[in-house]
Every structure is written in structure tokens, then in C-alpha cells.
Amino acid sequence: MLKHRIITFLSALFISYSAMSSSDNVTQNSESEIDSVPYDSLQITKAAANAGLVDAQVKLAMMYEQGENTDVDLEEAMFWYRLAANEDHLEAQYNLALLYISGTGVEENISAALYWIERAAHLGYMPAIIHLSIYSEFGDLTNNTWVKKAAQSGDVSARMLLADYYLTRGHSEEDFKIAEYWLWQVAKQGISEAQLKLVEFYLNPKYGSVDKEKSTYWRNQVGNIE
């Protein structure tokens, strides 16, 4: 019962601190008020983290990683990220993976990095999904779950990766239709690279969809964002 009250109290402190910290982007006056509050944000965050508040553990890890109100200490950052990651905090899992990839201040471990990125991706964390899709490169994208998920979520890089894959490696009408679909999705986002590819797509007999009217339409759209 006592432990529960302590955790509740520390949680309230941390939430209050987080709310005040976020308000410093609203006005310069509020920033001055926050700066004048007499407390040690590191110690409050550490107390909440030690009490088991997962968001506080992630915040503390970031503070150590970025040197916020303390010296940079990547070993401490790894420790707190790992605690939160084991509780399935998605940002912690992803940030932990990035530290393993960089090998800056910690031992590089690509296997561990892949484990944590894939764990976060499986739980739907979009930065992890996009990361995995980017590093897939070409390969066999027809069965690449991460590229497809990233593309379906609206990620331009993943969409272009699929479009280029089916344009360059496609051999059937269906392949080129898939390429056309993804080019349209990116072109509608105002990306000139996709718009120009559609201009060529509708002029090249290779793709089996010659349409001068559509080609002209996309030529006129190049650089325009609705």
C-alpha cells in the first residue's frame, strides 16, 4: 500500500513536470516561469523511473543520451532504455536499437539492434517499420512485409521503392499496374519525381499503358502541390 502511494506521488510529480516542460514552446513568458521553478528535473525523473514509471525511464534515458541537465552517459541511457523496452515501450525499443547500431559509446551489436527494431515494428511502431523498409533496398520486395506496411502508411520512400521495383523488374501487365498505382500515390502527394515518372510511364509502350492525355496531365502537375 505504501509503495503504491509512493509510485502514485512520483507519477504525479513526473506528469506535472512533463506538462510544464511541454508548455515552454507556447510563449516566452511561460518559458521564463518554468525556468524559475526550483526543482531538479533530473532527480525528479530519476525518482519516478526508479519507482517503475516507464515513461520516466524513457525520459531519463533521453536525458543521459542527450546530456540534458546531466553529462552524456550512454551506458546509463542504455540501461534505462532497456528497462522500458522490456516493458514494450516502443520508442525505447527503437532508440535502444539505434544505440546498438551506432556503436557510439556502447558496443555495436547489429543482432541486438535487429531484434529490438523488429520487435517494435511488429507492435506497429512506424519509425521502426520505415527503418526496416529503407534498409531492405531492392531484394525481393514482393514478400517484404515492412516495405508494404510503410508504403500503406503513406511513407514516400517505401512507395517509391515499390514503384521502382515493379518498373525495373516487372515483366507482366500486373507488375506495371502495381508500379502505376504506387507512382500515383506518391504523385498525389506532390512529389515531382513520381509525377515525372508517370509522364514517361504513359509515353513508353513498354508499360502497355500509353495515354498522352494522362502524360500531359502529370507534366502540368510537376511541382504543383494542392
Rank of each mutant, 00 (worst) to 15 (best):
A187K: 12
G170M: 12
W218V: 12
S23Y: 04
H131N: 09
Y94K: 13
W182E: 05
A77K: 10
L114Q: 04
S30P: 00
N86R: 10
A97R: 02
T145A: 10
Y17E: 07
L196G: 08
L74W: 02
E68R: 15
E65F: 04
S172A: 07
E31A: 15
L167R: 08
G67D: 11
F176I: 09
S11M: 10
F201I: 08
K197S: 05
V210T: 06
R5V: 06
Y202Q: 07
G67K: 04
A19V: 08
E33F: 13
A128G: 12
E75M: 13
V199S: 10
A120V: 06
S102L: 11
Y207Q: 12
A121P: 00
Y165K: 13
H89C: 10
A85Q: 03
Y125K: 14
P38A: 14
K214M: 04
W184S: 09
Y166G: 11
Q221D: 00
G190T: 11
E174Y: 05
H131P: 03
I101M: 11
V54F: 00
S23T: 07
Y207D: 06
N50Q: 15
I178N: 03
E193H: 09
A49S: 09
Y135S: 10
W182N: 03
Q152I: 04
L196W: 05
F138K: 15
I15C: 03
N204G: 05
T104Y: 12
E174G: 07
L96I: 03
E108H: 14
V26Y: 13
L183G: 02
L162Y: 04
Q28D: 05
E193M: 15
L99F: 07
T27G: 09
V54C: 07
L203E: 06
Y100T: 11
E226D: 01
D164M: 11
I6V: 11
V199N: 07
E107Y: 02
L114P: 00
T104F: 13
F79N: 11
A128I: 09
L132T: 09
S172M: 10
W218D: 05
